[in-house]
């Protein structure tokens, strides 16, 4: 498993749930969603506010992505081998 924190492009539904992510040059549809959770804290120094999603793409990639709810960007947190 590799820890990445790499910015990525994500397409979402109306509710903000990810539908496909841009990996390896193209958008891969998400076929399975595992757990998701939200964290928020660190406001006394630098606030962190993120929503995490565990997903598997149609290409078979199992990974964890998160949405930075302050900056608005999406990041790839880790890929599970």
């Amino acid at each position: 498993m590799k820890l990445l924190r790499r910015p990525i492009y994500v397409r979402t539904d109306r509710r903000g749930n990810p539908l496909s992510i841009g990996l390896n040059g193209r958008f891969q549809r998400i076929v399975w969603r595992g757990r998701s959770f939200r964290i928020r804290g660190g406001w006394w120094e630098r606030e962190v506010f993120r929503e995490y999603f565990q997903v598997e793409t149609e290409g078979g990639i199992l990974c964890e992505i998160y949405h930075d709810l302050i900056g608005g960007r999406w990041y790839l947190e880790r890929i599970y081998d």
Binding site: I39, R40, W44, F49
Partner: peptide, 28 residues
């Protein structure tokens, strides 16, 4: 209100908010 809640917990546990393990994960 979640910030005040964090501070209250810190006061209760007599710790700094930055060192508190008992904080809630988010503001939900």
């Amino acid at each position: 209100g979640y910030r005040l809640h964090d501070v209250l917990l810190a006061i209760r546990h007599r710790k700094k908010v930055a060192e508190l393990k008992e904080l809630r994960l988010n503001s939900e």
